[in-house]
Computed example of a mutant assay.
Amino acid sequence: MPQIVNVHEAKTHFSRLLDQAHAGQEIILAKNGQPYARLVPLAAEPARRQPGRLRGQVDEAFFEPLPEAELAAWEGR
């Protein structure tokens, strides 16, 4: 459940609220008792893809066609 904080209190305790948001807590900032803004942590940036990361770990057998019995199992036949 998000914590609701009025603007005056938020100005007084801004550093503490930032620490709480960074820890994953959602904080709703209110103005005159009405929700006004949301303080949430930034989403982590997705990992960058690195071409060639599996070089030398996948052999040629990986690219051979699957046997008919295994294909049928994957396709639910």
Results as ranks from 00 to 15, higher is better:
Q25A: 11
W74I: 09
K31W: 04
A72V: 10
Q3G: 01
P51F: 12
A30S: 15
G24V: 07
E70G: 02
L29E: 05
K11W: 04
E70Q: 11
E9F: 01
G56N: 12
A72Y: 02
R38T: 15
Q20R: 15
R49K: 11
A21Q: 12
F14G: 13
I27G: 03
H8K: 15
K11C: 14
F63R: 12
P2W: 00
I27Y: 04
F63H: 11
R55T: 15
L29I: 09
I28W: 08
M1Y: 00
A21N: 13
M1G: 05
V7H: 04
Q50K: 11
G56S: 14
N6Y: 01
Y36N: 07
N6R: 06
R38L: 13
P41W: 03
A43V: 09
K11F: 05
L42R: 08
V5F: 02
R55N: 13
L29Y: 01
P65N: 03
F63Y: 14
T12N: 12
M1S: 09
H13A: 14
Q3F: 00
G52C: 06
G33D: 12
H8G: 02
Q50C: 09
E68S: 05
E26R: 12
A61R: 09
E64V: 13
Q50H: 10
E45I: 11
I4L: 10
M1K: 12
D19T: 06
R38I: 14
V7W: 09
Q34P: 01
P67L: 06
V40C: 15
F62I: 05
E75M: 14
E26A: 14
P51S: 08
E60M: 02
G33K: 11
A47I: 07
Q20K: 15
L29P: 04
A23E: 10
P41D: 05
G24A: 13
Q25M: 14
Q20S: 13
R55H: 08
R53N: 03
A21K: 13
R55G: 04
Q20W: 04
R38S: 14
I28E: 07
P41M: 04
R16M: 01
L18T: 06
G56E: 07
T12L: 14
Q25H: 13
D19E: 13
A61P: 00
Q57Y: 02
G33L: 10
R77I: 01
G56R: 11
P2G: 01
P65S: 10
E9S: 12
A21Y: 07
A30M: 04
P41H: 06
P35F: 11
K31V: 08
L18Q: 11
R38Y: 04
Q25D: 09
A72E: 08
A37W: 00
F63I: 09
L29C: 11
A69S: 02
E9M: 06
F14H: 13
A10E: 02
A30Y: 02
G56P: 04
E26K: 15
